[in-house]
């Protein structure tokens, strides 16, 4: 019982980090990035290739994080250009189609070029005991990193001028422009930041379970579900929904099996949309 709960929190924190990135880009720029999971996988592959080239794990992880940020920048400078010329629903739709196409291309390339590669980072030492439950050390380390990063993000958004400026664009884009904030620059910044977050998701996840080249879509779908439940544009909502769904998913997996746990997650998203269309912590339109 407690073991499931703790495992659920470990998974949930990952979900929160994953969804946080997706929800920020959507909330800020009306861009739905369906290549988000592939950004994580590409970053993971950057880590794998760096390690194969002889780099130690920590510098290799740094390479992966930089790669994630660059992927975000690349997205902003290339395929999102035509998206930026549109507004409203057309904008969401075009971003969705273009990034989905991108995701298929990346998936195809990776499975053709590196069919068997996966990122696995191991941390030495035995299990850690928490509340009388023996937890895999990798999971605990991953959770600690995730908690630190999420706390850092929340502080950044609440306490710094730049963080507030980013939130203001989510709140009211025209208001932001009137105080001298350039929404387009904020969006580029957030695409880079969420690219780094995607890389971080891949890295922390690989401490628990191998991140294979094919993991992209599963990551994107999980992020989408968590985002829908948490509310678009709300990082707090993403974290809250992430932990909630992590726990639900873990209990479902242990009681009725892994295959059904994804269905349970989708069900949770469907129920949320029916009851609270704006998500648990989202704003009502």
């Amino acid at each position: 019982m407690i073991a499931n709960l703790l495992d659920g929190i470990v998974l949930g924190l990952q979900f929160g980090l994953l969804a946080g990135g997706l929800t920020l880009v959507y909330g800020l720029g009306g861009v739905l990035n369906l290549a988000y999971g592939q950004m994580a996988v590409l970053s993971a592959m950057a880590v794998v290739l760096s390690m194969e080239a002889g780099l130690a794990p920590i510098p290799a992880v740094a390479v992966g994080l930089v790669a994630g940020g660059l992927l975000g920048l690349l997205l902003d400078l290339t395929i999102l250009r035509p998206v930026y010329r549109l507004q409203g629903e057309a904008r969401v739709l075009l971003s969705l189609l273009l990034t989905l196409g991108m995701a298929f291309m990346v998936d195809g390339f990776l499975t053709w070029r590196y069919p068997t590669k996966a990122l696995t980072l191991r941390i030495g030492g035995g299990p850690v005991e928490i509340l009388g439950v023996r937890m895999v050390r990798g999971g605990v380390v991953a959770s600690v990193i995730t908690i630190l990063v999420l706390s850092g993000l929340l502080i950044f958004f609440r306490k710094t001028t730049l963080g507030r400026a980013i939130r203001s664009v989510i709140e009211d884009e025209q208001g932001a422009r009137l105080v001298g904030i350039d929404p387009q620059r904020m969006l580029r910044l957030i695409l880079v930041l969420t690219g780094v977050l995607a890389a971080l998701v891949a890295v922390t996840r690989s401490l628990v379970t191998p991140v294979a080249v094919t993991a992209g879509f599963e990551l994107t779908v999980s992020a989408l579900i968590v985002t829908v439940v948490g509310g678009l544009g709300s990082v707090g909502g993403a974290i809250f929904a992430g932990i909630l769904l992590g726990i639900i998913s873990t209990f479902a997996a242990s009681s009725i099996g892994t295959v059904l746990s994804l269905i349970i997650l989708l069900l949770a998203a469907a129920v949320t949309i029916l009851i609270r269309p704006s998500g648990l912590l989202g704003v009502k339109e």
Binding site: T161, R164, A165, R167, S168, E171, D172, Q174, G175, A176, L178, V179, G180, I181, V283
Partner: peptide
């Protein structure tokens, strides 16, 4: 008005000074 509704009065005012503190 185009205020930032889910931000405090303080934060709204602070953003008026952007990019300065």
């Amino acid at each position: 008005r185009h205020l930032f509704p889910r931000m405090t009065v303080q934060d709204n005012l602070a953003l008026g000074a952007y990019p300065n503190r």
